[in-house]
Design a binder for these strands. Sequence first.
DNA 1: AGTTGAAGGACCC
DNA 2: CGCCAGGGTCCTTCATAT
Length: 318
Amino acid sequence: MEGVDKEKVQRIIYEMSKGSKYFENEKRKEAFIKQKIESLRAQRAKLTEKDISHFQMIVNKRILELDGSRDLSKIWLHTDMDAFYAAVETLENPLLKGKPLAVGGMSMICTASYEARKYGVRAAMPGFIARKLCPELIFVPTNFGKYTYYSEKTRNVFSKYDPDYIATSLDEAYLEITEICKQRSISSEEVAAELRNTIYQETGLTCSVGVAPNRMLAKFEFQLVEIGYTDLIALYWNIPVCSDINKPNGQFILPNDRDAVMTFISSLPIRKVGGIGKVTEQILREVLGISTCTEILQKGALLHALFSHCSTGWYFRY
DNA sequence: AGTTGAAGGACCC
DNA sequence: CGCCAGGGTCCTTCATAT
């Protein structure tokens, strides 16, 4: 996000955390991960050329299998309300509009408005640190009743597009829109735009949408939309993006085409993939030098050698 | 010996 | 001044029991 002085934010977070129990615990965990990384490195060093080519064969076979079983016949749509809790509070109290707002308390905040994010304030940040970062930050206590109410409204809309929609939280859901597109012979892009518009009409709230052949990819795209990659990706793909798209309140469509999928994922950072968090990212980077999805495929043999069957398959699952 | 199930981590919102 | 959630899923690891 533009306008965030990352260094300053980091420094303040550090100053505020230093010496706390939480901080000590984090240090302990970090040390543990370091150790794990060392042991994986040692294991890797022991691998012979022969081992590697052996694993390479296994991996090639598996990738081929998975590639063959990829289902491109479905169209999945992922929606996520923009700064949901904060947006609801603003809707009910227009005085909060345009102000840096945090939903939560001094110990923990669960949502930050976009204005607050400019100061480095984030969800899952303790309130007292957020207040340090942004002294004029307005705190509103969480009120799940309200969010559930609005969530119901959005779900009513979802069910019109897919009665079996999958809600993963109050503000997030997956819809399979293959049938709708066919029935009404409209593109997924039109469905996405219409859905966003309907939700806005019904609730006064905006959401971001990603469309792709499967749920993982659909969600992946949503994240890119959210962090402002929209223009870049549209350019990259040469896909027209509706001009009314701004950073939150955006959408992105990935066509159901193998090459499109492969190109799309190839250069993107693994951290953006659902399920790969801070720790896994660090391990893959420091042990194998992997930071993009292409490198996952390139270093498949090593992955197979060092990690369990299950998680290796998991890393290849696109 | 393989299975299973509890406990603990990582991750997500 | 001190304050770092709570509820969920999925994966890995580790096996006795006074």
